[in-house]
């Protein structure tokens, strides 16, 4: 049984078909990529999976649980976490708070206990704080734990977004253009980094990316979107030589 199964997922914005008939079967531990030109509907696919938009048609199952119709926080609690194309940290909150928030669905204390600061509250706060700090230290951000997250340099903010996503304890991680704004050297580092977090946290990863080098380097399978439709899928090597893909990227009559 696949971990994530998406069947005929379709979404319209008004009359515009943003994603049409998107199908995906994802096995545990896979690392796949979704590529396509600007406006092809890649981020919309993420938004549909995570419940930001509700799919007009089709079904999304994680471990046989239907996600269509659930709220984003329920979907996150079921094990899907994501990062954002443009960084969306909680800017005025500390780095530590950014990570601790991700425990919201698994809290051990009730709101009333929170208001009275009972023993259970204290124990749980200690647990989630230490867990968050532990996670931050893996990504060498523990030194900045008390800092306002908006004060972090760009690279650290990107890492913090990943830490925050990991803190929700996901099974599937969706990375939306993780290489945005990086130079070729940093991209090579990022490739190792993504592989490493997959192995370290036993994750299944879906990646959206523009940078061909990154996608071709680490993804085991690729899907290519254009105008919301899947125009190709398969191994990176197959995609590289697919005439339809070349056409979508380079325009009609485009040459290599």
């Amino acid at each position: 049984m696949p971990l994530l199964q998406i069947d005929h997922m379709t979404h319209y914005f008004g009359g515009l078909c943003a994603v049409s008939d998107f199908n995906l079967e994802l096995e545990s531990g896979e690392l796949i990529g979704i590529i396509g030109p600007n406006g092809a509907g890649k981020t919309t696919v993420f938004n549909l999976i995570t419940g930001v938009y509700r799919a007009t048609k089709g079904s999304i199952l994680i471990n046989d649980v239907e996600l269509v119709g659930k709220t984003s926080n329920q979907i996150t609690a079921l094990g899907i976490a994501r990062t954002f194309q443009n960084i969306r940290l909680f800017k005025e909150l500390s780095v530590l708070d950014n990570v601790r928030i991700a425990n919201y669905s698994r809290l051990n204390y009730s709101p009333l206990e929170a208001m009275l600061h009972t023993g259970r509250y204290s124990a749980e706060e200690k647990r989630i704080s230490e867990q968050a700090l532990e996670l931050l230290s893996i990504f060498r951000l523990d030194g900045l734990a008390e800092e306002r997250s908006a004060n972090l340099p760009y690279g650290s903010q990107r890492r913090l977004e990943i830490v925050r996503a990991l803190a929700t304890q996901p099974k599937i991680l969706l990375l939306d253009e993780p290489a945005a704004g990086m130079n070729p050297n940093e991209i090579i580092q990022l490739m190792d980094f993504i592989r490493w977090i997959r192995d370290q946290f036993k994750l299944t990863i879906i990646l959206i990316e523009h940078q061909m080098r990154l996608v071709m380097g680490i993804c085991e399978r690729l899907k290519v979107l254009d105008f919301g439709a899947t125009i190709a899928q398969g191994l990176p090597a197959e995609i590289r030589s697919n005439p339809k893909v070349l056409e979508a990227y380079l325009g009609e009559g485009g040459e290599e």
Binding site: S72, N73, T76, L89, I101, Y104
Partner: peptide, 23 residues
């Protein structure tokens, strides 16, 4: 508490907050 942090995260970015499991 984490409920309070949830409230503050709504101020910062409601969509991101929802996606980080905040009800």
């Amino acid at each position: 508490s984490n409920f309070g942090r949830g409230v503050m995260s709504i101020r910062e970015d409601e969509i991101a907050s929802d996606l980080m499991s905040v009800n």
